[in-house]
């Protein structure tokens, strides 16, 4: 079977995010970039399926030159090859634009299965996989925490995390699945894996080769316009009660929780 994994490179979860002066983005200097952590589950799942059922695994990623680092990590983990959507025209795409570009890269591959992370940890929108499934006319199962291949090899039974429990769904391939924590334990890139990754192909795909037009992607096509980014408001200092009788202090705290914080 052929499996495509969509990858995003995001700032490390521990990176300190600073806004640019014009509030239109974040300072990209001095940020450590990593593979979106949820995408690691997608890569691992693809590798496990391939190990069990054979086939080919392709990683697809859109972004500037630096994203090849995340792609190499996926290749070092064991993915077979990569397609890198790389063109200035793709910059500032919204979720729809991104999904259009990914769909253009994925369609010629005719995969049986497309795996994504449940969301990217930077913008947290979780929209691209859903739009991608629409564009490719495939069913989608999101937030998959468990997956069992069907006996026919052309379907899967997936457990989705929902509020208070799990939903069990059967899906026929080709399909888009988004992977959640708990689906598997992502492996580490081994030394032989890293060395082999050096020789694996990452095919660049520009706007022209993708068959899209400049109006389909990038800022021009964006249905969502970001006005500005704001830092989190600073937390006001807490109120401290001390050097009084405990029952009195408790009364005051309860009063504030009720009247000011309005949480009880």
């Amino acid at each position: 079977m052929k499996i495509v994994v969509c990858l995003k490179q995001t700032p490390d979860t521990e990176a300190t995010i600073k806004l640019t002066a014009d509030k239109q983005g974040i300072e990209e200097q001095n940020i450590k970039w990593v593979m979106n952590p949820y995408d690691e589950y997608a890569v691992e799942q693809a590798l496990r399926l391939k190990e069990k059922h054979g086939g080919e695994t392709v990683v697809v990623c859109m972004g500037p030159d630096r994203v090849t680092e995340a792609m190499r990590t996926a290749l070092a983990m064991g993915m077979d090859k990569g397609v890198h959507l790389k063109d200035d025209a793709f910059a500032h795409s919204d979720a729809t634009g991104t999904a259009k570009a990914l769909a253009a890269a994925i369609k010629p591959l005719s995969p049986d299965l497309i795996l994504c992370g449940r969301q990217a940890i930077d913008w947290d929108m979780a929209q691209v996989p859903a739009i991608l499934a629409e564009l490719l006319d495939m069913p989608q199962v999101t937030v998959v925490a468990k997956m069992e291949m069907g006996a026919d090899g052309k379907s899967a039974v997936c457990n989705r995390r929902i509020e208070g429990g799990e939903e069990v769904v059967e899906v026929k391939f080709p399909a888009v699945l988004t992977c959640d924590k708990g689906l598997n334990e992502p492996r580490y890139a081994s030394l032989p894996g890293i060395m082999k990754a050096k020789k694996k192909e990452i095919k660049p795909l520009g706007l022209a080769e993708s068959g899209l037009s400049a109006n389909d992607v990038g800022k021009a096509s964006s249905k969502v316009q970001i006005l500005e980014y704001l830092p989190l408001p600073e937390r006001p200092p807490g109120k401290v009660f001390k050097e009084q009788e405990t029952p009195d202090m408790v009364k005051q705290v309860v009063k504030l929780l009720r009247e000011e914080a309005k949480i009880i």
Binding site: R72, Y188, A189, I194, M195
Partner: peptide, 19 residues
């Protein structure tokens, strides 16, 4: 080099997640 960086990062990940 890119590979050396990957090795370093992989070992760091191994420390953080395993060790």
């Amino acid at each position: 080099s890119e590979e050396e960086q990957q090795v370093r990062d992989a070992v760091q990940k191994f420390m953080e997640r395993e060790v």
